[in-house]
Design a protein around this nucleic acid. Structure first.
Lengths: 367, 367
DNA sequence: TGTCACTGAGGTAACGTTTCCGCAACGTCC
DNA sequence: GGACGTTGCGGAAACGTTACCTCAGTGACA
């Protein structure tokens, strides 16, 4: 009958309620177009309304009826048309993910993965777009997301500069992750770089290191700044200070090698080098070894990020801070969902402490 | 009037066509809910149908009317509700992107970025999800995408193993990128690893290198295999062969250092080492230099991937193959759009040759 | 002048879902 | 035994859009 045909529709005058009409649809295997709730209802011998209640777990429906409908739905392998659902509910079950800058691959991906796992749990989907570092595009993309009726926006920063706040222009919940924004009342989830660097400092001091140098990234990056503050503050607590001027530079191993040689030449008795990233640390460690020193006996080296590509490939492997970016992404999205659910979420920045991962590049100081 | 209220709706008995009724809606600044096409139509004094034609560039409408409607639309800053649009058209203007494995961050991201740029150009959006390496999840996610009514699927592989083909189960256009699938008639876009490795070989032979070794990844990875074949084939064309057994191993610098030392010990006169990736090459180069040899004078070193993080950080920088992954992603999505547009796209694998990037790690052989 | 093709425009159904409301049946309480 | 609340269910509207069809007006051509 027509029902089976490619785009045929069941006749508008459906069978009257009163009993299953399975016979009429017998053998309606999943053909072409996916089944609709209307078909499920008609096959189960109930009204569309009742079928809707059944699959959505609403009340005002008897348990027997619900089971019957669900059984039919399963037989037809019915799955709701989320598009239609979203049209009527005003909710799309989609969140938008805005990457400020794709250049930060390495950090965006774990955040995305963490976010994704929560999104999936909630049976949402994520549409992602990146602004390619162009600030104006952020607003354009926000408009695009509005057209798509997304329920919330996750803006992924780069932990270096401030992301422009789009909370006001987007009329939907916005959560920012991995980096500050231009608006202090935004909901922001960030890594606690201050605490992380402090942890490293305490670790080294606890191992008896006394002459510590610091090699890190560009001094205008907020992550760099926070780590420097955390490091010096923690040393201060022990009545210590850095043994050499801080070496600021690009995130470049090539540069880090030069910087390390300079430091070791000027201050040959350095016994620990704290690095602003694992990438730098890998180059630093390599250079320290190349100058004939032993790691960690003569000089301890620490990284930051726990980026396996570097942290686990040096010899010895790097002691470093794991920022737990997946967890960061997941937590941020949880907040976003709380807002979507209508809960009140306090604005401001929430700092996530990472964990210290101790590996071979640090150890007791050479007595 | 009611129109201004939060969720108030214009009275069903709209003004009769015949003239603009701007006065009635004066001052209807973008309040709360975004404007609908119905409002635009009523404000422009035309029917909903006509307004739809105007904004969609359909014919059967006079130029004057179209302009009038468009002006009103702009004033109201109307933008179409894509959700409703997709419901009736059956097209969602969304494509699904399926990442087989998030562990390949580094390669997935550029592909995503390239794909994204095309997607955006077409005013589509991309919903991304990753299977976390679990094959079964690919099918689950495909089902999820179907619920979302996506118009096509881009499956991003890892260039190592075969991705399971979901073309048959998904009833929508599917394009696979970066790695083969289990079904030979799938539309696949892949890098031409054979040609890339051959290019490297010709380059080295042209520079006078005669005793070439190869350090690469795990031998079961398809990329590794293809590169080995390309390399040996090209050498064969010059009547040459590899000067040492191929060193297969994990994608690990730590391992590459050991492998390099072994090779140089067994065959001290090696004058070039071709590496299966920049990551390996960085470690190889470091080790070659550590054994007192000069790069490139004594030993030339080549990488693969043009991964700036490694290729530009060694000293000298690496000669390598750029796989142009962004372009690969863009091309694949273009194919996908062609299929979505109903064009017939031939199945099978299309190989994309990369380009040789010559840097300091290769040069004329030491005379 | 009658016919025909074409243009511009509007009316209406359709998409698949949820929600609001009404209705009948049934049970409970006074 | 009547008033009333609850339960189970269906009808109909609503969401915003596009596709299809109809209709009036216009100009060309026989």
């Amino acid at each position: 009958m027509a029902f089976q045909g490619g785009d045929g529709r069941p006749a508008p005058s459906g069978p009257k309620p009163g009993g299953p009409v399975a016979g009429a649809y017998a053998g309606s295997v999943p053909a072409g177009r996916p089944p609709t709730l209307t078909e499920v209802a008609s096959l189960a011998g109930v009204s569309l309304t009742t079928a809707s209640k059944a699959v959505n777990g609403r009340d005002r429906i008897s348990e027997a009826t619900r089971r019957r409908v669900l059984r039919v739905a399963r037989e037809l392998s019915y799955s709701p048309n989320l598009v239609a659902k979203s049209l009527v509910s005003g909710r799309s079950s989609i969140i938008g993910v805005l990457l400020r800058d794709p250049m930060v691959h390495r950090f965006a991906m774990p955040i995305l993965i963490g976010a994704q796992s929560v999104v999936e749990q909630r049976e949402f989907s994520a549409v992602v777009a990146d602004a390619r570092g162009v600030v104006d595009r952020l607003t354009d993309l926000a408009a695009m997301f509005r057209q798509r009726n997304v329920d919330g926006l996750l803006v992924v920063g780069d932990n270096q500069g401030k992301s422009p706040s789009i909370t006001a222009s987007a009329r939907i919940p916005c959560v920012y992750v991995y980096g500050p924004t231009t608006h202090s009342r935004d909901v922001v989830h960030s890594t606690d770089d201050f605490a992380g660097a402090a942890t490293v400092a305490h670790h080294l001091v606890g191992l008896g290191r006394a002459r510590i140098a610091h090699v890190t990234g560009p001094d205008h990056a907020s992550a760099v700044e926070q780590r420097v503050l955390g490091l010096t503050h923690a040393l201060g607590e022990h009545g210590m200070r850095l043994a050499a001027d801080i070496a600021y530079g690009p995130w470049s191993q090539r540069w880090a090698r030069l910087a390390t040689r300079e430091i070791l030449t000027a201050q040959p008795d350095i016994d620990a080098i704290v690095c602003g990233s694992d990438q730098l640390a890998a180059a630093v460690l390599e250079t320290v070894v190349a100058t004939g020193r032993k790691v960690p006996d003569d000089v301890a080296v620490t990284g930051y990020d726990n980026w396996a590509l570097f942290a686990q490939e040096t010899d010895p492997a790097l002691t470093t801070i794991d920022m737990e970016l997946e967890h960061l992404g997941a937590t941020a999205v949880n907040d976003l969902f709380a807002m979507i659910d209508g809960q009140r979420v306090g604005g401001g920045t929430r700092h996530h402490e990472g964990t210290l991962v101790v590996r071979g590049s640090t150890g007791p100081a050479n007595a």
